[in-house]
Design a protein around this nucleic acid. Sequence first.
RNA 1: GCCGCUGUGGUGAAAUGGUAAACACAGCAGACUUAAAAUCUGCUGGAGGGCAACCUCCUUGCCGGUUCGAGUCCGGCCAGCGGCACCA
Length: 855
Amino acid sequence: MSSEQRKAFPFSDFEPKWQDVWEAKKAFRTPNPGDADFDASKPKYFVLDMFPYPSGAGLHVGHPEGYTATDIIGRFKKMSGFNVLHPMGWDAFGLPAEQYAIKTGQHPRATTEKNIEGFRGQLKRLGFAYDWDREVNTTDPGYFKWTQWIFLKLYNSYVNDAGKARPIAELEGQGLSREEIDSRRLAFVSSAPVNWCPELGTVLANEEIVDGKSEVGGFPVERRPMRQWMLRITSFAQRLIDELDGLDWPESIKLLQRNWIGRSEGAHVKFQIVGHESDVTVFTTRPDTLFGATYMVFAPEHALVDQITTPEHAAAVEAYRKVVGSKSDLERTELAKEKSGVFTGAYAINPVNNEQIPIWIADYVLMGYGTGAIMAVPAHDARDFEFAQMFALPVKQVVQPPEGKEWQGFTDHGTAINSGFLDGLTTPDAKQKIIAFLEEKSLGKGTTNFKLRDWLFSRQRYWGEPFPIVWEDGSHRSIPESELPLQPPTLEDFKPTGTPEPPLSKATDWVRYSATATRELNTMPQWAGSCWYYLRYCDAQNSKRFVSEEAEKYWMGGGKPGGVDLYVGGTEHAVLHLLYARFWHKVLFDLGYVSTPEPFQRLVNQGLIMGEDGQKMSKSRGNVVNPDDVVKEYGADSLRLYEMFMGPLEQVKPWSMKGVEGVYRFLARVWRLVMEVSEEGVWSLSPALQDVPANKQVTKALHETIKKCGEDIEKLSFNTAISQMMICTKTFIAEEVMPASAIVTFLKVLSPFAPHIADDLNARIATKFPALAVQGLLSDATWPKYDPAALIEDEVEVVFQVNGKLRDKARVPIQATKEEIEKIALASARVQEFMEGKTPKKIIVVPGKLVNIVV
RNA sequence: GCCGCUGUGGUGAAAUGGUAAACACAGCAGACUUAAAAUCUGCUGGAGGGCAACCUCCUUGCCGGUUCGAGUCCGGCCAGCGGCACCA
């Protein structure tokens, strides 16, 4: 026997066949408002996947997990009368694509094209209902034209006092200088220290650094000052926190974002430096402990260090700064087990008690947070305490902890002591009072600080969007919109230079913009294209605008804060893509280009699929499952169904090939409801299939399945929906005659999960019972309605408990009253036995469920 | 260290505060078969009792609470996973 014939059902024949039919018919084309076949009376549903990075390795089994979930939802919503937007595209710029190209000695454009083709083919073989006319590719000039256009919107905007992005022209009207205007742009040039990764030959954003190493490749990262493009995401910090509230996102992801943005409330306090004109401002979340400040610490890079250091300490300070400067972030934070620092010889004056306190420099104070200087309160801060112990600095108690707690190193709330006018106040009250005092005396003020840094937006790479910017006489300006898209130059050698000089510098012709102006040489990071791709899906072919107003209003509208109705993807983008996209969306919203303040209303994270060994899938462990192999062996429907049956979508779960066989057997049973095989291995319609009404059991099972599957799909509870379909199939199997119309209804319910087998069986049934089957595709059919009457039984099983323990059961008529059920329960011999002749204290009757007799 | 999530059979898991373990995998037994595969049927949390049908007790990480009734709600612990981390 050939392996073809041994298949339990001929999926390898009909799966490609139906994929071809769907493609030829454009079965999943979604008309836009304005199209002839657009039905404006239907509500919209925009269901989005995180579009893949088309790597050379091809799809892994994690991709179809989220994609199948959205496909089921999309197909279900379409059958339920929605206009469904369910698109797919490619996030194809970025480091890995370029590294892969370098490794294989090809141009990234060529490898990207090839990888996309591979991915597209794999996705089509899984039968996803995408509207391929809306496919987007971030590396397509027709796409990145608009990425560059949005960058120009950022470049030409600022944030006003109300916290809204506005056109920069408003500032020009106010007569501000060029420098003042440049310093307020949302896309601006900065020379602050950045994360430079020598191995990758590029700078990286904070979000791309994990444990002091590059997220891609795990290479060391060092800080060095470089002239770079930044995006002013910090101006949106508060809104990015506040506007999470209206979103249906997992709390854990909201929390991740809130923590990353890292809002903390406190105060700025000004300290006078002894013998100097200048003062220094510190940020503290505990202004109530100001009386306990016994020394001060500056970050080694602090600008005032040179001015205040006394001659006798200059050598030590210089030496220390040199040591710190050579350390990577990793060495400075992760690996620093002990505090270090040196005294500058200078003193500051504590504004509340005029005490002179020494100023030290130490690398535990970071230049990038707050003001780069702190007041040290060793009694009530763990780090200051450790430092004070090490260098024998004084420790002064100013907070009285609750009874039984040691004051040294006590960092929680308590009562102020040794703090003059604050004594006796609780920590929150003391904070309020000291802030009022500082503000009144102009010594400081209440402030909110954020951990979030501005987004470092330029990369020294070839494979990214070039900036639509030129430089002339040391200043930058945008190129006209009419010159977009700005294509990258054709380069034979696009490898990183190994220095901060971007590879685009090698394109000497391209670089020269005019006799006096040259192009910006950096490119945008990978995240740029993914910040707005969901908008492009709404109107992917538009060459006049990034998305038409009409299409944006329809697909992104709907009266909720977020436009996309459901967004499914991995949790790894919690503080990268999801934060960046929200930021861009808010800018576009403020400027009037989009109609909602948030991009994604409902977010769901699918859980990671582990290898059969319970470990994360990786090539080195050899536990990677290739979806192509699964499709070949068991078919696309089996793969889809298995990935949904494994367990809850959001949960981490291990792969099991035996589990795939389980759902495969289920599909084979469904197949044999309708089909039978001859001795020669030829399949034909089973004679058991007849035009007869379904009996009571079958009707009940079928309507329970319609109800449960519909409800479970809405809840994304696919595993329980599938188990219900398995139960229903068993009920069918027990029958001698298969009622054709009931089978067709069942196939409609199955079709979002396993669309190939469902369409195939329906078409086969249609050959014999044209009036009973769906004419055409099941995806164009209407989701069946369940009949509540069909679910009701004449009798239900009621459980009898004595003192909460199950003692007996009985079937009682559905319409039995509480009193009647109670009577039946009390009459039960077993119930009486366990009551031991005692009188019931209390009897609880839950009709249709149970009786609990308390004695 | 801080924050979050998760702990249920041999395994993946299910269970609006109401029969714990549905559905599936694995295992065992049987039917069909010359045989195997495939398919179908039955059994399958633990301990104890009974010739048997069956019966009793225990069981959702641990301890306590609320409740007629807790896997589910509340408090305290423990373990695993994930995130953040010298952020003043």
